[in-house]
Simulated scan of single mutants.
Amino acid sequence: MLDIALKQICFAREITLSLLDGLSDDDYFAMPVGSPTHIAWQVGHLAMAEYGLCLFRMRGRQPDDLQLMPGAIRKAFSRGSVPEADRSKNPSVAEIRALMTKIHEQVLVELPALPAAVLEEPTEMPYTATPTKLGALLFCAQHELLHAGQIGLLRRLLGKPPIR
């Protein structure tokens, strides 16, 4: 089942990255009329969530995690945080994208080495299908696709063409 969860996580990331192609830094922080969010927040949130669901929940906090996912970044993009349109109050697009890439790469290093028994351990919400660590991994892919949909909608509101 771990291989299925990893394939789903990677598939969701491919969709997200395709939606980010061709966007300018200005596009990342634009908040179309009526929108409570922007693309930069969506990307930062996905990085934070992948760290939480795929690394922290699987093996707890590690000594290097503060460099991987700094506390200020985690707070800025966690569930319930409010997207800030002022670019000066946010990390740069390059920093957010680098964070997203670095965390995903770490997930691809660590998850394949997880013992199967770890996946059966219980976890709290959010999860999908089963209240286990495997359920958290499965939720990670679904969560990313949900936010990819939001990125896709923001793209369209910014006048960008749909992704084919």
Rank of each mutant, 00 (worst) to 15 (best):
N90F: 01
P91F: 13
R13S: 10
M100T: 06
K102E: 12
L158I: 05
V33H: 13
F139L: 07
V109N: 07
R87H: 01
T128M: 08
H104G: 06
P122Y: 01
Q62T: 05
L2F: 00
R156L: 15
Y28C: 06
L138Q: 10
Y51P: 01
P131S: 12
A116N: 08
P83R: 02
P131I: 06
L108G: 02
G44H: 11
M31P: 06
P131H: 07
L2I: 09
F29K: 03
L53W: 02
E50D: 10
T128V: 08
M125V: 15
L134S: 12
Q106Y: 03
A85C: 04
E124C: 05
L6T: 09
I163S: 01
Y51A: 04
C54L: 04
D21S: 14
H45S: 10
E144V: 10
D65A: 09
Q8Y: 00
I103M: 04
V93G: 00
A117R: 12
H45N: 10
P112R: 00
D3L: 00
G149V: 07
E84N: 15
D64P: 00
S92C: 01
I163Y: 07
K160G: 02
L99D: 01
G152T: 00
L158F: 03
L55N: 01
P36K: 04
A76L: 15
L114W: 03
G52A: 11
A12C: 06
K89D: 00
R59W: 05
K75C: 05
R97Q: 13
L108Y: 02
P131G: 12
C54Q: 02
I103Y: 03
K7V: 01
E50A: 06
F139R: 09
Q8K: 02
V118K: 11
L134T: 12
V93T: 14
M31R: 08
K89T: 00
H143L: 09
M69L: 13
T37V: 13
P126G: 11
R59I: 07
A136E: 03
N90K: 03
P126E: 11
L20Y: 05
L99F: 11
A12R: 03
H147T: 09
G135P: 08
A12E: 01
S18G: 11
P32G: 09
R59D: 07
F56R: 15
T123A: 12
L20D: 03
L158Q: 13
P126D: 12
T132H: 04
G135A: 10
G149S: 05
K102Y: 00
H143V: 04
P162H: 08
A76M: 13
A113Q: 13
S18R: 07
L146A: 12
T130S: 15
L68W: 14
G80Y: 09
K102V: 06
H147F: 13
L154G: 07
L114I: 11
R97E: 10
A113N: 05
T37P: 02
S92A: 04
I4T: 15
L2M: 11
E50V: 00
